[in-house]
């Protein structure tokens, strides 16, 4: 029998952090040098100018503090954004074509007065905050991402929901001429997601507009995307154009694609496996061995009470 202990790895086999980061730096320097040779001017990778300075976003007590951040290049090049293709590298390759200005979000459904807000107005709804969250993908990998955003509740409070409103549905952009992935109906476009109203109003739930102190890149869901850190990553709809208050549980794109595999709640839960793979462990991007997946992705103290009395095996 093989007993697993930390001694399994010979010290000689471990790449020292210094060497490891030097390797990455080498690549980065290479890319940077190459880019500065090709592109004139100093700002080689200038994002569209944000109207609000993202880097001054205030720190939030909801951020995780003791975990190291996932590399910027991994966060921005390893993405699931099926509108641009089902390969992880597709979004970074193709998402440049996405038109993010002008951009409006209409908030409608069971509300007293529907509203359409421009992205620049949304950025002023509340002070931007930096939220460092764990992100756990349903596929079994995870990241730690420094988002910049505002509480979703501050956006939802721009309208007055009617008494019957119990759920919030999120509808994302479809730009067929700019999104090669929507030519094939792998999912029911537009990609839709949903939350229960109390989940949507929860202080941990944010609308992210930036990451790593800069405006969101298109492949990460520019100009604004949902982040619900205790749920699997696919709940975080990208490039949102419509928010609708409803009285019935919305059927999301993934529920339509695989009703037995993807439920409405999709809370991170190591005890409820995906029918085809285990959810007990995850690989943190950048790490070698897998780590245990935490109930509610480690946010149980804040969110477990939302689900008291519910059977999470049935409401997966």
């Amino acid at each position: 029998m093989l007993i697993k202990s930390p001694d399994d790895i010979l010290p000689s086999e471990i790449t020292s952090p210094a060497l490891y980061s030097r390797r990455r730096d080498f690549i980065k320097t290479g890319i940077g040098l190459g880019a500065s040779l090709i592109l004139p001017g100093t700002a080689a990778f200038a994002a569209p100018k944000p109207t609000v300075p993202f880097s001054t976003a205030k720190k939030s007590p909801y951020s995780t503090t003791d975990e190291s951040l996932t590399d910027h290049q991994d966060v921005t090049r390893y993405n699931n954004y099926y509108e641009f293709g089902t390969n992880k590298a597709d979004p970074a390759r193709y998402a440049d074509a996405l038109q993010t200005r002008p951009w409006t979000v209409s908030i409608e459904g069971l509300v007293k007065q529907p509203k359409t807000l421009g992205i620049d107005d949304i950025l002023k709804v509340a002070p931007l905050e930096e939220r460092i969250y764990r992100m756990r993908c349903v596929e079994g990998w995870s990241m730690v991402i420094p988002w910049v955003g505002l509480p979703l509740s501050s956006l939802l409070k721009q309208v007055e929901p009617l008494g019957g409103a119990k759920y919030v549905e999120f509808i994302t952009a479809v730009q067929p001429e700019n999104m090669p992935g929507v030519r094939r109906r792998v999912l029911d476009w537009p990609y839709t997601e949903g939350l229960r109203l109390d989940e949507a109003m929860h202080p941990l739930t944010i609308m992210a507009v930036g990451l790593y102190g800069e405006a969101l890149l298109n492949q990460n869901g520019a100009p604004l995307r949902l982040v619900v850190p205790w749920k699997y990553g696919f709940k975080n709809g990208k490039s949102i154009v419509k928010i609708r208050f409803t009285d019935k549980e919305p059927r999301t794109s993934w529920m339509k694609a695989g009703p037995f595999e993807y439920g409405f709640y999709s809370n991170v839960n190591p005890e409820v496996d995906h029918p085809r793979w285990s959810q007990a462990r995850e690989r943190r991007i950048g790490e070698f061995t897998k780590r245990k997946t935490l109930m509610f992705n480690g946010y149980g103290d804040q969110v477990a009470q939302l689900y008291t009395g519910m059977n999470l095996k049935i409401n997966f």
Partner: peptide
């Protein structure tokens, strides 16, 4: 060797 296998090299 070149560390060019992306974010999730093991996969």
């Amino acid at each position: 060797y070149e560390d060019s296998l992306g974010a999730n090299p093991i996969e």
